[in-house]
């Protein structure tokens, strides 16, 4: 088996090396990938959306459908993990062995995480809010927020964390994010434009360009909520093997 695998790998490698001959040089400003669509985004995104971060503008505006369904994929992944692991009969012992019972609290660990978690969460909100002007946005903010909850669950234990942020709340939050995203799209539809065409939001008193900018912030918020809830719920389910008792 290993020999066949090595042969296949080498064959694929040889083919790819041959193919690399036709590829543009690294850093070529006029490579095919850089010459057709992307100059339009670079030149027009500020004019059309008032968002200097082109990645954010393309992500949430020009490719809004794509990002909406990426968010839905994340939501579905969370639901899938839940349905795979929760409340099932067990034949073999747990894959993840529960942590032995604590001899008192870990003072250093818990104090450090109590200092760190608020900073992480404020930084996550900063990353979300400044996604228009600096590297950041909904996905990154969601992952940082999720990581702060995971840190709390690691340094205290899973039960303490779940008492504050229950599984039901997590599920509602993850659905809420998708609803915020799709809701903004549907709002544009109700206001008489196309789905996710943020220009329709100008009825709230913005100029057309600023309506794009605020629409992008709204959908990024939805993305952040879903990603946060799903990151933590993935951790909760995987670490406890679906039982939500003692985790790692």
């Amino acid at each position: 088996m290993k020999k066949i695998a090595l042969l296949i790998t080498l064959a694929v490698g040889a083919l790819l090396i041959l193919a690399a001959e036709d590829f543009p040089r690294w850093g070529d400003a006029h490579a095919p990938a850089n010459d057709y669509l992307s100059p339009y985004y670079i030149e027009k995104s500020l004019e059309e959306t008032a968002v200097p971060n082109i990645v954010t503008a393309v992500l949430a505006d020009y490719r809004g459908y794509d990002t909406m369904f990426e968010t839905t994929v994340i939501f579905c992944a969370g639901i899938t993990v839940l349905t795979l692991l929760r409340r099932t009969q067990r034949k073999a012992p747990k894959a993840v062995r529960p942590r032995p019972a604590r001899q008192g609290a870990d003072v250093i660990l818990q104090s450090a995480s109590r200092l760190l978690v608020p900073v992480m969460q404020i930084f996550a909100l900063y990353v979300l809010a400044l996604g228009h002007h600096s590297p950041g946005g909904g996905f990154q903010a969601g992952v940082i927020l999720g990581a702060s909850f995971i840190l709390l669950a690691l340094s205290y234990d899973l039960k303490t964390m779940l008492a504050r942020l229950s599984e039901n709340t997590l599920l509602r939050l993850s659905a809420l994010g998708v609803i915020i995203y799709a809701g903004i799209g549907a709002l544009c539809l109700l206001l008489g434009d196309n789905f996710l065409a943020y220009a329709a939001l100008k009825v709230f008193g913005f100029s057309e360009v600023m309506a794009h900018s605020h629409g992008i912030l709204g959908v990024e918020l939805g993305v952040a909520v879903t990603v946060m809830a799903i990151m933590f719920s993935l951790y909760v389910d995987l670490a406890s093997g679906g039982d939500l008792d003692e985790g790692l």
Binding site: L59, E70, I74, G137, F139, L234
Partner: peptide, 9 residues
Amino acid sequence: LTAIVVGVS
């Protein structure tokens, strides 16, 4: 950017 997060999930 989206591929990384979808990859994690």
